Computed example of a mutant assay.
Amino acid sequence: MESKYWLPDIEFDAAVVRMSWLTVGDFIVADDAPQTYEEMISQVEGQGVFVVWSGGSERTIYSDPKINFAVRAWHDWCHWRGRHDFSPAGEIAVAGMQRRQLIAIYGNTPRTRRLCRLIDAEIVGQMLYLQRHGEFPTDQRAFVATYADTRLAAADMRHCFVGS
């Protein structure tokens, strides 16, 4: 499905880059990044640096691949800090952690709750898609727009505050 009306959300881009800066700080983008939770933990704790994968950033919901890399670093930091593995339960816990961080920094506003829905679509939605289809969506923009509109637009966002 092609997303013909996609416009990047500059406020979301800015928010996630800020979250990456507040949590991770510096990180490395590389073709060869840790692929498992254990490899990531070993990399971070052994070398003190987060390394994120350089691929798969052509059709993301962000305006530039560099923003997608920053989001990956923030996401991996949440895995590391929360000790959440890469299992479905770990991904759901990380999504919750990221939502709560957004609320803590930007407040519980309609705009921030929309950002929380985008986080849910990107992390939980894509994980569910992967489980069902054996691959990630090729057009993340179309996927996230559809997922956010159909599954989460009217959702009760109390889960933004539930501890992980």
Rank of each mutant, 00 (worst) to 15 (best):
A33K: 02
Y129T: 00
M157F: 05
W77G: 03
G163V: 15
E38G: 13
G125W: 06
G56N: 06
M40S: 13
T60S: 13
Y62Q: 06
V124T: 11
F27D: 06
V49E: 10
T150Y: 12
M40L: 15
H133N: 10
G25D: 15
G25M: 09
E39M: 11
A145H: 13
E2L: 13
H133M: 02
L152V: 02
D31C: 07
Y106H: 10
H84N: 13
D31K: 05
A121N: 00
F69Y: 14
G125E: 05
Q101W: 10
L128G: 02
M157Q: 05
F12K: 04
M40F: 15
H79K: 07
D31A: 11
M157Y: 07
R99I: 03
I61H: 10
A154T: 14
A145E: 15
E58I: 10
V17M: 13
S20A: 15
E58Q: 14
D139S: 12
W74G: 00
R18T: 09
A93C: 08
F50Q: 08
C160V: 13
Q35P: 02
S3T: 10
A30F: 01
T146F: 03
H79P: 12
R132D: 05
E39R: 11
E122G: 09
A142E: 02
L7M: 08
L128C: 02
A95G: 00
R151Q: 08
E2V: 05
R100V: 00
G90D: 07
V49A: 13
R117H: 00
L22H: 14
M157C: 06
V71W: 05
I105R: 09
W77F: 15
H79A: 05
P137T: 03
W80D: 06
Q101E: 14
G48S: 09
Q35S: 10
D149A: 15
Q126D: 00
Y37A: 11
A30H: 07
I105L: 08
R111G: 06
M157A: 01
V17A: 14
R18Y: 11
G56C: 06
T146M: 09
F161I: 04
C78S: 13
L152C: 09
D149Q: 10
I105S: 04
G163W: 14
I92E: 01
N68E: 08
A153Q: 07
G25S: 11
C116K: 03
C160A: 09
R114T: 12
L115F: 15
T146E: 09
R100I: 01
L152A: 05
D149N: 11
Y129K: 01
V94E: 02
Q43N: 12
L22R: 14
H84T: 07
E38H: 12
